[in-house]
């Protein structure tokens, strides 16, 4: 595989992560538990959408075949999406949404910090901007997980249930394949395994403050990064892509 192709695939994975998770947050719009949190969730979603646009634009530029960021977002099917399974997990209740984002942002913050030193100037620039956004995402989700875990009997149970649902999807974050390896060797990409220790320390600290228990080692799901998804992604893309599929090229 050429470095160019690896870079396209790498950018698309990052774009898909941000796009899918951003859409999940958009699904909360108007349904948040309170007005203040409704806005907060939309803010998180919009940050992610901005990151998705940057990565899609870069991928489109690298492909150089005239495709646009919109084509990549709205005209690719589920098996062409390369996001982590974690980010396509349904919102569930507020506990699931906040835990999902804690698990993700505790990984993505150190990831962006590292990527901002990439040899690839574009990836480094996107990461440098996204790093600050992700720091706030981690802060906000961690505070909620602590309050829900250390809250009422009901909120603790919901939080612990959420852990059981989502934990099997955390292993995939630290996988790497030839795409990663090739770019790591070139000083462009980040070795996911190098982020595991920091991620685990963050999660551990939050769980302790929240009174939550980390599961014993469990079977880890995998597949998103190669296009093998849960049944949830197809439904999400159907809604997200409906307009462009039905009215190709529609603009407003």
């Amino acid at each position: 595989m050429s470095v160019q192709q690896a870079l396209i695939d790498y950018s698309l994975r990052l774009a898909d992560n941000a796009n899918v998770l951003g859409h999940r947050f958009c699904e909360w719009s108007g349904k948040g538990p309170m007005l203040e949190e409704d806005l907060a969730l939309s803010n998180l979603g919009l940050d992610l959408l901005g990151q998705a646009r940057s990565f899609y634009s870069y991928a489109a530029e690298l492909k150089g075949d005239g495709c646009t960021e919109d084509d990549l977002a709205f005209l690719r099917d589920a098996n062409e999406y390369k996001n982590l399974l974690l980010v396509e997990m349904p919102n569930g209740d507020f506990a699931v949404t906040m835990l999902r984002h804690l698990l993700f942002s505790a990984y993505y913050l150190p990831f962006f910090v590292a990527l901002s030193q990439s040899n690839d100037k574009t990836l480094a620039a996107i990461a440098a901007k996204a790093e600050r956004e992700m720091a706030y995402h981690l802060r906000h989700s961690a505070e909620w997980v602590i309050r829900l875990g250390d809250g009422t009997e009901d909120s603790l149970k919901r939080m612990q249930d959420a852990i059981m649902v989502l934990w099997p999807y955390t292993g995939e974050m630290f996988e790497s394949d030839e795409i990663d390896q090739q770019l790591v060797d070139a000083g462009v990409a980040i070795d996911p395994e190098s982020l595991r220790e920091q991620w685990h320390a963050t999660i551990n600290e939050v769980f302790q403050r929240a009174g939550l228990v980390e599961p014993e080692s469990v079977w880890m799901q995998t597949g998103g990064r190669t296009g093998v998804h849960t049944e949830h992604l197809g439904f999400m893309l159907a809604e997200m892509q409906f307009l462009q599929r039905s009215y190709p090229g529609a603009e407003w």
């Binding site: 007005l35 203040e36 806005l39 907060a40 803010n43 505070e143 309050r147």
Partner: peptide, 20 residues
């Protein structure tokens, strides 16, 4: 003004509601 569970969350909600 806004509603929030405690001071820390009030500050974060204020950030999200009033400094967008």
């Amino acid at each position: 003004s806004l509603h929030a569970v405690d001071a820390t969350m009030a500050l974060q909600n204020a950030r999200d509601v009033y400094t967008r």
